[in-house]
Simulated assay, not measured.
Amino acid sequence: MLQPLVVGLGRSGSGLHLNTLGRLARRTAATGDPLVALPAVGCDPRAGGLRTLGMPGEVTAVTTLEQALQHVDPATAVVHVCTPPRLRHDLLAELAGHGFRRMIVEKPLAASADELDALIRLRQEAGLDLVAVAHWITSRLADRLRRLVGGGRLGSLRRITVDQHKPRFLRSLATDGHPSALDVEIPHSLALALDLAGPAELRAARCWDLRCEDRSLSLLGGAHVELEHRSGVVTLLRSDLGAPVRQRSVVCEFEGGTATAHFPLSEDDDHAQLVIAPFDSGTAAPSAGVLDADGVPGIGHHVFRDDALIDFLDGAYRGFASGAGGVGNFPLACATARLLCAARERCSVTPRARAGSR
């Protein structure tokens, strides 16, 4: 079994990674195939003042890496790097210096092209097995979209539109970990678009400010990103962090119809939905809401469980155990990070959109 070390106990580290690791440990132990060794170690300078983390006995909180080394062996550890992307290379280099090799890194990989290049060199020189968090890609919903794209039931894919909207006032006011809205939700949808439609070039990018009462937070109100894929597909990514409602939807437009995918909105419910509608109502297809023999979803409304993060971590840990943790994940993560860097550069010289623009 592998023991987790979670570095950074903000929303991502404590609210998502530690909680999910506890569930994964209990799930795999119950099936007789234990995967995660508890207690996990949570490391953050603020650890002493944080609320209770995880279930009793599942987490040991420390404030420094030196303290963490008293509780975890680098040879059997997986480090979850849940700190902000800025200056992440220095932290990874420090972890590598202590002997850690297996790492799961929160999105995006790096905040600049130079940092990304430095991280790639570090990975090669230190022999790191590095996986970027990309649970949208490994979700059951994304798998059904991939099968639909490859199956040809609705013809060729033509356009992807992703909407990721939520009110994020409190977290944006309380923390400064994300320099712009490009770093909050867009990495998830950008990676999915590249996975579905292949390599792409940036066509346009813009951000706007988040305004509330008498305050304005630069570039944190939302973002638009437009891509043109080599396959001919056009992608529009939209994220409004001042929206009054939550939305996580992906619309794939094909020659012969549309597929509208809805990702779970929060930990409150782990069900995804997929609505497939042909332009020709007479299109032959399996019964509504079912999969054919090749796993391609049929016409209609599909509703199914899709706890993507726990499945992602399950796959990552099994990959680490087999020695192939980041083999398929890392190239896509790098391509995503490079496009994000290009979008940041575009936003730094492009006039900002009006607040709330969609």
Rank of each mutant, 00 (worst) to 15 (best):
Y317S: 05
V105I: 14
R88F: 06
D294R: 00
T260E: 14
N329D: 04
L196Y: 06
L38P: 00
E125P: 07
T283G: 02
R26V: 13
H71Y: 07
S112F: 10
I120H: 00
A191S: 13
D209A: 00
E66I: 11
P199R: 12
V81S: 05
F320T: 04
T52K: 00
G300R: 09
P264K: 04
P56E: 07
T63C: 08
L87I: 04
L53Q: 14
V303I: 12
K107H: 02
L128E: 05
L236R: 09
D73C: 14
H224R: 15
R338H: 09
L141Y: 12
G22E: 12
P278Q: 03
T64P: 01
L210W: 01
V275S: 05
I137M: 02
A25I: 15
G150N: 01
L122I: 06
S348H: 10
T175E: 15
D270N: 01
T283R: 06
E345Q: 13
W208H: 00
T138S: 12
F304I: 09
A284T: 15
L194Q: 01
D143R: 01
D294C: 01
D33C: 06
C82S: 13
L109Y: 04
G99D: 11
R318Y: 12
S287F: 08
G295L: 03
G54E: 13
L141R: 04
P199I: 15
L5S: 03
R46E: 15
P199V: 14
Q124A: 13
S281R: 03
E66A: 09
G198F: 10
A204M: 08
D294N: 02
C207E: 02
D73F: 09
L339I: 12
D183N: 14
A61E: 15
C347I: 10
G232K: 11
D306Y: 10
T161A: 00
R11Q: 15
G42A: 06
R159A: 14
D114V: 08
P108H: 08
V349N: 03
R123N: 10
T31E: 14
E253G: 07
V79M: 08
D240F: 09
H71Q: 02
L220C: 01
S348K: 00
L128A: 04
P331T: 09
E58D: 13
R51T: 15
V133P: 00
A25N: 13
C252F: 08
S231T: 15
V41A: 01
A93C: 06
R358D: 14
P39R: 13
A285T: 15
I120A: 02
L21T: 09
S322K: 12
N329H: 05
P74A: 09
R354E: 07
D269K: 07
T28P: 12
D90M: 05
G319F: 11
T64V: 14
D311I: 11
R159G: 05
V72C: 07
M1F: 06
T175F: 11
E253H: 05
H98P: 04
R211H: 04
L332S: 14
D73V: 13
H229W: 12
C207H: 01
D33L: 11
L24E: 12
S231Q: 09
V162H: 11
S281I: 03
G155V: 10
L141D: 10
A223Q: 02
L154Q: 07
G22A: 11
L190R: 03
F320M: 04
G282N: 12
P244E: 06
G242Y: 02
P85Q: 07
E253D: 06
S287W: 04
D176F: 01
L202G: 13
